[in-house]
Design a protein around this nucleic acid. Structure first.
Lengths: 120, 120
DNA sequence: TTTGATACGGACAAATTTATCCGTTATTGC
DNA sequence: GCAATAACGGATAAATTTGTCCGTATCAAA
């Protein structure tokens, strides 16, 4: 069962919409894997070993519900399931690349700041 | 006292860096207000009435610690404090605009999906 | 002198997200 | 049969974020 929000979601501006569907610790990595052709849940898990399979499944479900990826079940035994980006998911790639570029360009400063926050 | 993280922060890719400094329910609105010339805490609060002053202060502090805004205390009575974007904060504006544009372009679909998640 | 504006943050509760533990089903290979 | 792989999700604990309730201080104006 999925968690039921108790406070209203704010979607004033487009950035809030973006944050809403992107928030989730592993979602970026998941989208990235799928974009790079790793489609099966087990394969994805092998590329994101820090997270448990359970958690990845949950976030994959959210991505599906938000319409960024689609899930194809081949209905064969042994099981086979594949995820792929939807059109909406694809439209997100250049946006992700823009933000990722900003992060990389400022990595040194950002890492230092983030680090100093986590000690005092 | 600020919360002490217990699990390691993941900063593999630039997008994670972006998410790290942008995560926080009111940060976008705060940056937006400051960018648009509303600099004093009380004024900012008037533009974001859904949040309590306490919460806004906390997130403003985080933005300062992450180096996105700077805080100038005029050391006069009655109190006067002003926030402004740092160079790093400014460099974020076009990135925010890119993601916001994506959100707006897909608002209809996204709102519908987000909404349907919140009912079943 | 009481009210209101400015500014800030401790202490704690509530909401939300993430992680861990385990149980299910079915197939392949040894 | 027994272990490994593939797939999925309930129940619950732990971590993290957000919100609420207060208390501090200074000054101005009514």
């Amino acid at each position: 069962m999925m968690y039921q929000k108790k406070t209203p979601t704010i979607l004033d501006c487009g950035l809030h919409l973006f944050m809403e569907v992107m928030s989730g610790k592993w979602k970026i990595s998941l989208l990235w894997s799928i974009y790079h052709g790793i489609k099966r849940p087990s394969g994805i898990h092998k590329t994101i070993t820090q997270a448990s399979r359970r958690v990845l499944d949950a976030q994959l479900n959210q991505l599906v519900l938000h319409g960024l990826i689609s899930r194809k079940d081949y209905h064969i035994k042994p099981y086979k399931v594949e995820y792929s980006l939807t059109e909406l998911g694809h439209s997100l790639i250049p946006v992700i690349e823009t933000t990722a570029r900003w992060g990389e360009e400022n990595r040194l400063v950002l890492e230092e700041k983030i680090f100093s926050c986590s000690i005092d």
